[in-house]
Structure formats: structure tokens, C-alpha cells
């Protein structure tokens, strides 16, 4: 009964990963038979100035978005952990943007970020704040994508909510009896007990940014203006499926794979010590 899952994983994950190793050393356009060309693909990729741009953009996105999303999810989980009247409604509201399909979400924010009559700038103008051109301006385009990603934090929110729920109530009660302030309770009880979840969510967010940045960059900015939102997955897509340079595409995938692999090793080390999800 395990076999469909194992075979599927083998065919759809292991085999493609293995193939990209081979492909990275060949000249291949998807039509003619691949030709061996050694390390030439690698040197071409590294020589391409767009490669540096894409890596820098992706790293900037990670540095801005991951802490913002994590802190947002943590703050929301703390705010909405106790059940009062309306909590269910508020939680649903917070989760709502996360369930919106990527394409619809990207189009929606394209409208919201519209520099002239988008609702965001109308709002900023009404309260007298400066209204940047967002996606049309190279220094605000990437931050704009970070902002819209900060609204889709439902998964982290639920995980941290569950993590909070799991901290026994008496820890806090006995700490309060000993005269601990609310901040001390948070700093010395809640935070350490949540730490594994926070670490796991951080790593997951970093890794999945290799995937989640594609749709906004592709649909909203096309990587522009002036390559300001050219992120790594978009570069992979363009190399492979626009220019049919599968070899170079494979090199990029391989590099992505190595980075992801290193991060996954970190995840593994965390999870192993901690027995993620396994019974007791």
C-alpha cells in the first residue's frame, strides 16, 4: 500500500533530481540530442550578470520577508490564542488571504498597488503619506512583493497557534505565582518552548521562497523594472522555457538544489533531535 507513494516520489522527485545532474553538463535545447560540454554551462551561468542580480534579489526577498512573516505569524498567534467572543471570526479573517489562489492574489495586488488609482495609494494619499509607484519603481518593486507576501501567513499562524496551545497552562500559572511579569513569562517559557517550531518555520519559509516568489514576479512585474524583481525561480524559467537553454537551466536548478539540500540538512538535524510528529 506504500508503493504508489514511494514509486510516485521516485518518479516525480528522485528521478528529476538525478536527471538535472546529467543535464547540467550538456548542451540541450529540448529537440536535438544533448551534447556533452563539461563545465561550460557553469562558467556561462556564473559569467551572466543576471545570475548575480537574481541571487541578490532572492536573498533580499528572504531577508525582508522571512522575519516579517515569522514575527507576524507569532504576534497573531499570541493575539488570537485565547477563545473569546469572535475569535473564530478573527482567525478566519487572518487566514483568508492565504487561501486565495496565487494568480488571483497577484492580480488583486496589482490593482491594490496601482500607483495612480490603486486603493493603497489613495489611502496613503488621504492620510498624507507619500505614495510611491510600488511595482513601477525599481526600489519599491521588491518591497511591494514582500508586503503582499506578509499577508499570506496563515500556515505559520496555525502551526504556532497549535504550538502555543500545547504549552501546559500550569507553567504560566506557577511562573505568575513566583512573580514573573508577562514579558518574563513570554521570554523564558513561551519562546523556548516554541523555538523548534519557529526554527522549522524559518527554514521552510526560506526554502519555499524559491517557489512562492515565482508567480508574483512572473505575473506582476515580469522581473522588472530593470530586473529589480528578477528572482532565481524566474531566471530558471526564462533560461529553460523561454530560451530553451536546458543545460543552463539545469545548472541553476542544481545550485538551487545544493542550497536547499544544505538547509534541509539543518531541518533534519532539528527534527531528528526532536522527534517531529512521531509518537511520544
Amino acid at each position: 500500500m506504500l508503493s504508489p507513494y514511494l514509486l510516485g516520489t521516485l518518479a516525480l522527485v528522485a528521478l528529476p533530481a538525478f536527471l538535472s545532474f546529467g543535464l547540467a553538463f550538456t548542451l540541450y535545447d529540448g529537440l536535438a540530442a544533448p551534447v556533452w560540454r563539461g563545465l561550460q554551462n557553469f562558467s556561462e551561468v556564473f559569467a551572466d550578470p543576471l545570475f548575480g542580480t537574481a541571487v541578490r534579489n532572492s536573498l533580499t526577498f528572504i531577508l525582508l520577508a522571512v522575519p516579517l512573516r515569522l514575527l507576524g505569524a507569532l504576534a497573531l498567534a499570541l493575539l488570537l490564542r485565547q477563545r473569546h467572543r469572535g475569535t473564530g471570526l478573527y482567525r478566519a479573517a487572518v487566514y483568508l488571504p492565504t487561501v486565495i489562489p496565487d494568480v488571483a492574489y497577484a492580480l488583486a495586488w496589482l490593482w491594490i498597488f496601482n500607483p495612480i488609482y490603486g486603493p493603497l495609494n489613495l489611502l496613503l494619499g488621504a492620510v498624507g503619506l507619500p505614495a510611491p509607484a510600488w511595482l513601477a519603481q525599481s526600489n519599491t518593486a521588491l518591497p511591494a512583493i514582500v508586503i503582499m507576501s506578509a499577508f499570506q501567513i496563515g500556515e505559520g499562524f496555525v502551526v504556532l497557534l497549535a504550538g502555543l496551545q500545547d504549552i501546559p497552562q500550569d507553567y504560566h500559572q506557577s511562573a505568575a505565582l513566583d512573580g514573573a511579569s508577562r514579558w518574563q513569562c513570554f521570554r523564558f517559557i513561551t519562546l523556548p518552548l516554541l523555538a523548534p517550531w519557529l526554527l522549522l518555520l524559518t527554514l521552510r519559509d526560506i526554502i519555499l521562497s524559491a517557489q512562492s516568489t515565482f508567480t508574483p514576479a512572473y505575473l506582476m512585474t515580469g522581473g522588472g523594472p530593470y530586473y529589480a524583481t528578477l528572482v532565481v525561480p524566474l531566471l530558471v524559467y526564462e533560461e529553460a522555457f523561454d530560451r530553451f537553454r536546458f543545460g543552463q537551466g539545469a545548472v541553476l536548478m542544481l545550485l538551487l538544489f545544493v542550497c536547499v539540500g544544505l538547509l534541509l540538512l539543518l531541518v533534519y538535524l532539528t527534527v531528528r533531535r526532536w522527534g517531529y510528529g512521531d509518537d511520544r
Binding site: 538535472s20 527554514l203 539545469a250
Partner: peptide, 21 residues
Amino acid sequence: ISAVLLLMVPSTALWLTRFLL
């Protein structure tokens, strides 16, 4: 544990060769 790791593999790291398959 392998499923947890698998969960985190971004599809972008696979799409080119998956396309060929």
C-alpha cells in the same frame, strides 16, 4: 522524517527535468 524533508522540496528545483519526463 523523509516525508517532512520531501515536503520542503520546492517544485522549482524540479520543474525542468519533470517537464522532460
